[in-house]
């Protein structure tokens, strides 16, 4: 706990001191989702036409219209189903991950683009949190550019790792092992707890892979590593040496995630019309803001933990801006050192 809580709080602070990043990723998420939403709006409008059913759909839920729409939906329209309402949508999305159910092709494409954008932005985000000082827009995006291709190379390893997990590992656990064990079980409750245990196993593997790649990215940025494989190995080494703090910090962040979900579960909007639509949109965006802040806190707190546990984190004063040296260079060289020369922002 000596390092976990301080790292967590420091991480929150680093996120709070860089509000532009949080606002930026919120805007990014909204802008990526907006074009498909416009398409869906058109599909819904075409389906409703000038019918009185539009009034019912505007005020509440018109189940007959929805059944007609669903029976003829293709592409993006297939994803327009009752699950999207309220907290059921969150459960559906989480269930899709754990049950490896996937999305329709259109959403998979949008999500892939979204992940690519995150991969691009992560370099600047981690650089900003690691330096723990304003880096300005130009420096931010320069860092994004510097680390994008390194993260892409890291992403190749990630694709393989997650591919193995969502492929053969998931299939073995849930399509072979689980049905084989439970085939003759007459008690549902027992099967549920077995499935829960398998979710914990699978989830644990996902988390383990995720943590490794988190610290690989952090080490790549903080130490200006160019080798993706080197960063990966270094990440494993760091985790192996500090398993307790790493796991503890991840668990603390995870607990906050569950809290956010629970709060949204209580406040999630429904399907009422009128001004409730905008209130619901506001509540949902606040929830998404909280999740994004938490995601950034994951990175910021993990960066803080890494820096806290390594020697070159032991500096007490912010060095003068000496970009583009790495944060490690900043930390090792004294602020007044002539070796810290460079372009001043």
């Amino acid at each position: 706990m000596k390092t976990i809580l301080p790292s967590f709080l420091d991480g929150l602070g680093r996120v709070g001191r860089a509000p532009a990043i949080l606002a930026g990723v919120l805007l990014l998420t909204l802008l990526v989702a907006l074009p498909p939403a416009i398409v869906v709006r058109g599909l819904v409008a075409d389906s409703l036409g000038d019918s009185l059913a539009a009034g019912a759909a505007a005020d509440g839920v018109s189940q007959e219209w929805w059944a007609e729409f669903s029976s003829e939906a293709t592409g993006l329209g297939v994803s327009f189903s009752p699950q999207i309402i309220g907290f059921g949508g969150v459960l559906d999305n989480l269930s899709r991950v754990l049950d490896d159910r996937g999305y329709v092709a259109a959403i998979t494409v949008v999500a892939s683009g979204y992940l690519l954008l995150w991969t691009f932005l992560l370099g600047g985000i981690l650089d900003r949190y690691a330096r723990n000082r304003p880096t300005r827009t130009q420096a931010f995006f320069s860092a994004c550019g510097v680390f994008f291709f390194r993260f892409l190379r890291l992403g190749v390893f990630a694709v393989v790792a997650y591919g193995v997990l969502f492929g053969p590992v998931h299939a073995w656990l849930f399509d072979l092992f689980y049905p084989w064990v439970t085939s003759d079980w007459p008690v549902e409750r027992n099967a549920f707890f077995l499935r829960l245990a398998l979710y914990l196993v699978f989830g644990g593997l996902l988390v383990a892979v995720n943590v490794v790649f988190d610290y690989a990215k952090i080490r790549a940025v903080v130490e200006d590593r160019r080798s993706a494989l080197g960063a990966l190995i270094a990440a494993v080494r760091f985790i192996r040496r500090h398993p307790g703090p790493v796991a503890g910090l991840y668990a603390l962040n995870g607990a906050l995630f569950l809290l956010i979900l629970a709060l949204y579960g209580l406040a999630a909007p429904g399907a009422r019309g009128g001004w409730f639509v905008w209130l619901g949109f506001l509540v949902t965006e606040l929830y998404l803001l909280a999740r994004l802040a938490l995601k950034l806190t994951f990175y910021a707190s993990e960066t803080s933990l890494f820096q806290r546990l390594l020697a070159h984190a032991e500096y007490t004063a912010s060095p003068p801006p000496a970009w583009p040296e790495s944060p490690a260079a900043e930390a090792i060289a004294p602020p007044s050192s002539p070796s810290g020369g460079g372009i001043e922002s």
Partner: peptide
């Protein structure tokens, strides 16, 4: 109606993107 349901769907998609 289309605006309302697109807005609800927008929130669900954003949640899906964040989950991914």
């Amino acid at each position: 109606a289309a605006r309302k349901w697109a807005t609800i769907w927008l929130g669900s998609l954003q949640d899906a993107l964040l989950t991914c």
